[in-house]
Computed example of a mutant assay.
Amino acid sequence: MRAFLSRHPRAAGLAAEVGRFGSVGALAYVVQIASTNLLWGVVGMGPLAGQVLGTLLSIAVAFTGNRFWTFRDRARTGYGRETLLFLAMNGVGMLIQLACQGFSVYVLGLDGPLAQNIAGNVVGVGLGTLFRFFSYRTWVFPRSRPPGTPSDGAAEGAGTHTP
Rank of each mutant, 00 (worst) to 15 (best):
L114H: 08
D152A: 01
L98N: 09
R145H: 05
T162F: 07
A99N: 08
V52Y: 00
N121E: 02
L98T: 08
S144D: 12
N121T: 11
F68Y: 15
G112P: 00
L98M: 10
M1G: 14
I118D: 03
D73S: 15
L27W: 07
G78R: 06
T149V: 07
T162M: 12
V30F: 13
G109C: 01
L27N: 06
I59L: 13
A88Y: 04
F63I: 11
S104N: 10
T129S: 13
W69P: 10
W69Q: 05
D111T: 11
G102F: 02
A62W: 05
R145W: 01
T138K: 14
A49N: 06
Y29N: 11
L98D: 05
F103E: 02
E17W: 10
V92D: 06
S35N: 09
R76G: 06
R10G: 00
R81F: 05
R81T: 14
G41W: 13
A99E: 01
F131C: 04
Q101H: 08
A115N: 10
A15F: 14
W139V: 11
P150E: 01
G65T: 14
V31L: 08
V105K: 04
A158M: 04
T129F: 13
A60N: 08
T55M: 14
R145L: 14
R145K: 01
L87S: 10
C100M: 11
N66C: 07
A12C: 09
R7S: 14
Q51T: 15
P150D: 05
G41R: 14
Q101F: 08
A60D: 07
M45K: 06
F131Q: 02
I96S: 00
L95D: 00
T64M: 11
R81C: 05
R7G: 12
I33Y: 04
L53I: 15
R76H: 09
M45W: 08
N37H: 13
Q116A: 13
R7F: 05
A99D: 03
A12G: 00
T160P: 01
Y79I: 15
A3E: 10
G153D: 03
